[in-house]
């Protein structure tokens, strides 16, 4: 059986909130290392990969592999009933029909309990190869959100170009064009505002802004976001969580001219 308790429901609420508009039905794959999720969006352009490691929970117990087939819209309805600071406990039997969720507000001695019906989901699992990316950009997640929102007003696509001089986001549309360039920036007193660019070779790729703005719904999960690019492979956008847990998005590039 599965039993996984989070000190605050916040993490799980925000993670589900971040992906619910991109993927609808997906399996939460539970085993002794934690809870993992992989799912493609309907048009098979983007892929979500989430890993909540066992260490993120206290306690965490899962003796065998359990797949929890969940409709995220339904899960969102249940999670809406959880206070951000409530403790959250997820429980399921070995071959479960339901996912049991318990929210506890310890200060108020209030306990709420929900059973969410599960479904059989037969999903393709994609193998994501280990990639040495040509460019890895770490930047404030709020800045990334601002850039994608601002450029969305100009065009449906953005070209991300990483060079030794910095990273440039540029868009061309019917009304004109726009760009934002960020240079490496490491303020000693404000680590959350750091922009770091690790570059093995210059790279430029074009992506759909519709998906990038969607990924930015994960912004509350982490102050920093990591963008990993290599020529002609999907962009990886990573929101790192405490203890090595993560929420990653992969986005297939736009190709040709």
């Amino acid at each position: 059986m599965l039993e996984a308790r989070l000190d605050t429901a916040n993490l799980f609420k925000s993670a589900v909130d971040a992906i619910k508009d991109l993927v609808q039905d997906c399996n939460f794959d539970c085993n002794d290392s934690g809870i993992a999720l992989q799912a493609m969006d309907n048009s098979h352009v983007a892929l979500v990969s989430m890993m909540l490691k066992a260490e993120a929970f206290s306690p965490f117990r899962c003796d065998r592999n359990i797949a929890l087939g969940v409709n995220l819209t339904s899960l969102t309805k249940v999670l809406r009933a959880a206070g951000r600071d409530d403790t959250l406990t997820l429980k399921a039997e070995d071959a479960p029909d339901v996912l049991n969720l318990v929210f506890e507000a310890t200060a108020q001695d209030r306990i709420s309990e929900y059973d969410l019906k599960l479904m059989d989901i037969d999903q393709e699992h994609l193998g994501i190869p280990d990639t040495e990316y040509a460019a890895t950009i770490s930047m404030p997640s709020a800045e990334f959100k601002r850039i994608t929102t601002d450029l969305m007003a100009m065009s449906e696509s953005v070209t991300i170009e990483a060079t030794k001089d910095g990273v440039k986001f540029s868009s061309t549309g019917d009304i004109g064009n726009g760009s934002i360039t960020l240079r490496q920036h490491t303020p000693v007193d404000k680590p959350n505002e750091t922009v770091e660019i690790e570059l093995s070779e210059p790279v430029a790729l074009t992506f759909s802004l519709k998906y990038l703005t969607n990924f930015c719904k994960a912004q509350p999960l982490s102050n920093q976001v990591k963008l990993c690019l290599s020529a002609e492979v999907p962009l990886m956008v990573e929101y790192g969580l405490e203890g090595g847990s993560y929420l990653r998005f992969y986005l297939a590039p736009k190709i040709g001219d």
């Binding site: 352009v45 193998g127 297939a252 001219d257």
Partner: peptide
């Protein structure tokens, strides 16, 4: 103009 590629073109189905 540029064409949107699909994710399965890069990551193989397991």
């Amino acid at each position: 103009s540029s064409q949107q590629s699909r994710i399965e073109g890069f990551f193989k189905v397991q």
